[in-house]
């Protein structure tokens, strides 16, 4: 752009830099599956969906904890399940060389998936 587009704002470059990071993350977070990378492309897609479901389950669990209806035993079991699930996801991400950022697909006008 030829003109300055900031009408008002902080001169703190950190804020602007953070925004640029977000923009580059959007470019990186598009699914790119082709004949050469079909394995990792599909792994990214599948793990993204698993991660989305895992986060939904986690949120639902937190709502139940907040509601105060769970017994100590149930909280124990919930903690064990969620922790193992998270650890397994970490293993899979490591195996397919994916980061958290890779699993947050950009849905264009709808924003990020997570």
């Amino acid at each position: 752009m030829k003109e300055n587009k900031i009408l008002y704002g902080t001169e703190d470059m950190e804020v602007l830099t953070a925004q640029l990071d977000t923009l580059s993350a959007i470019t990186d977070s598009r699914l790119n599956v082709n004949a050469d990378n079909v394995d990792s492309g599909l792994a990214k897609l599948v793990l993204t969906l698993v991660e989305l479901i895992r986060k939904l389950i986690e949120k639902q669990a937190m709502r139940r904890v907040e509601g105060g209806t769970l017994t100590d035993e149930e909280i124990e079991r919930l903690g064990e399940t969620l922790m193992k699930l998270e650890n397994k996801m970490e293993e899979l991400k490591k195996y397919f060389n994916l980061s958290d950022r890779d699993l947050n697909i950009n849905l264009g006008p709808l924003g990020d998936l997570m």
Binding site: I75, E76, G79, M83
Partner: peptide, 14 residues
């Protein structure tokens, strides 16, 4: 237990 603390940490984040 480690599981309970895990839930409590998650709850704080939530």
């Amino acid at each position: 237990s480690v599981y309970k603390n895990y839930i409590l940490n998650k709850f704080n984040e939530y």
